[in-house]
Design a binder for these strands. Structure first.
Length: 499
DNA sequence: GTTGAGCGTT
């Protein structure tokens, strides 16, 4: 198969280099950066308008312009600029925040692993000088033989260069090398998160959408959207300052209002956390196994699922379970349901499950797997038929007989039925769910109350009985509510860790 | 003369 080449030059007037394209006609960003270290994209001069036009970049692949293809056009490298937020320029100087950031953004020595034996300190320096001023470059050698140990250290003058170098792999003298913060420096470097949490996402928002939108605030080095859909995503910026500046803001992307917040854990005690720290801050675990030289890029692998993927029961060594970022998840704590739906919510404490920007089926699955049915275990209550309220199976309208025909043998059919708004078959994930026609759950419960009140017992007894039940229900609901929050916390943390 | 995960004689 013949390989198509395209001509790329560092800039206009420079001599172009021919770069090989892939089978699908795209050019790998890694191929580009192997020849032009530090370059983040391509542009070309549009023959019609004479203006520079950018080349589409998606998933680490540069796509040929649809109008002209690669052709014989010369393409020019794009190098990221210090593209801070223009509107905030006047805030950049001499604010306390900036000063504080500056002290955090100091450079450190970086270890370069995987150097070819032949690479000299001079080679190393020359390679990394394309990213910025290099203050130090050393190759570690065996003192006796003088032979390289295959790794070395570099130090940049500017933090931006350091970030850029850390954000990618490097082809040095024919070998792919990793640059990392040395173990000896980990923990000593103050971590500034580059990653932000994007809440209230919809399924329509693609990684490209997010990359394109947030790219206007600064260079985006990674976009991560959990699969299956979980209504949030992570965007990583090259510049932690850009990331920080966006936190707390609401942004409208393709008509969707998303909320940006810090992806960093809210508390020190949170399990997992930011493994390793360092300026990359957010490379959780960094279980980099090394992509092929022409792999799709170095970002996806940061989120390699661990062995516990998808197992909601396996919490691992968690210090505690704390509150999730409910606001970022779009949960305000204020119930927003219309009055006729209010009773459908068995929690009834302002937590509006119907409005959750996550798939209720997922919540149900998580709760079920974790053994935390919301309502199911209420079936074991001594109070007769209490679960009727949440278990309106087709054969069960009298309110006098327990409904034994649970769907799929679920251990907590009440909750699942509630999820399905009154005993209909599970629809397997249709969401958002259409509003219920009727509050059947409420009806069942009221029917039960009616039976009690209509009984022959004295008024005092009845009141006492009802009051006792209500108290019990209330306490249970609070417990459920807390458990649910913990589940959200767990879900968020899982997502946060890349699971 | 060989090797290919690691972590630096300051």
């Amino acid at each position: 198969m013949s390989v198509e080449y395209l001509q790329v030059a560092e800039d206009e007037g420079e001599e172009p280099i021919e770069l090989p394209t892939e089978d699908d006609g795209t050019l790998l960003l890694s191929t580009l950066s192997a020849q032009f270290p530090g370059s983040s994209g391509l542009k070309y001069r549009n023959p019609e308008t004479k203006a520079m036009r950018g080349v589409r970049l998606s998933e680490g692949r540069l796509h040929p312009p649809p109008e002209i293809g690669w052709g014989s056009q010369i393409f020019y490298c794009v190098f990221p600029k210090e593209n801070k937020r223009k509107s905030d320029d006047n805030l950049e100087n001499s604010t306390a925040k900036t000063k504080r950031m500056e002290t955090k953004l100091r450079c450190t020595d970086l270890i370069v692993l995987g150097l070819p034996w032949k690479t000299t300190e001079q080679n190393l320096r020359e390679y990394f000088e394309t990213f910025g001023e290099v203050l130090m470059a050393q190759v570690k050698k065996d003192p006796k033989t003088g032979q390289s140990k295959g790794f070395g250290f570099i130090r940049f003058a500017s933090y931006e260069s350091q970030m850029r170098v850390l954000a990618q792999r490097h082809m040095i003298d024919g070998r792919w090398c990793d640059v990392k913060v040395p173990n000896s420096k980990e923990g000593l470097i103050q971590q500034v998160p580059c990653k932000v949490f994007i809440g209230r996402c919809t399924e329509e928002l693609t990684a490209d959408d997010l990359r394109e939108y947030f790219g206007k605030y600064g260079e985006v080095t990674d976009v991560f959207i959990p699969k299956p859909f979980r209504a949030f995503s992570f965007v990583t910026f090259l510049d932690p300052e850009v990331a920080q500046s966006l936190c707390g803001e609401d942004h409208i992307i393709k008509g969707v209002s998303v909320h940006v917040s810090n992806a960093a854990p809210k508390s020190e005690t949170r399990g997992g956390g930011y493994g390793g720290g360092g300026p990359r801050g957010g490379n959780h675990g960094n279980n980099r196994s090394g992509p092929g030289p022409d792999g799709p890029g170095m970002y996806q692998q940061r989120y390699n699922p661990g062995p516990n993927q998808g197992n909601w029961n396996n919490q691992g060594p968690r210090g505690n379970i704390d509150m999730p970022n409910l606001q970022a998840l779009g949960i305000t704590g204020q119930g927003q349901q219309s009055s006729n739906q209010q009773g459908c919510n068995p929690l009834g404490l302002g937590l509006n499950l119907s409005a959750l920007p996550m798939n209720p089926a997922l919540v149900a699955a998580a709760l079920n797997q974790a053994g935390w049915g919301l309502i199911g275990n209420l079936q074991n209550q001594p109070e007769p038929n209490f679960n009727q309220g949440f278990n309106n199976g087709p054969n069960n309208n009298s309110g006098n007989t327990p409904n034994g025909s649970n769907q799929g043998g679920s251990s907590n059919p009440g909750f699942l039925n509630w999820m399905n708004q009154g005993g209909q078959n599970q629809d397997g994930g249709q969401w958002p769910r259409p509003p219920p026609q009727q509050d059947q759950a409420n009806k069942g419960f009221l029917k039960f109350l009616g039976l009690v009140l209509k009984s022959g017992a004295s008024g005092r007894l009845k009141t006492d009985f009802v009051w006792r039940i209500l108290k019990k229900i209330f306490i249970r609901l609070i417990i459920k509510y807390l458990i649910l929050n913990s589940v959200f916390s767990l879900m968020e943390e899982r997502a946060f860790c890349g699971y």
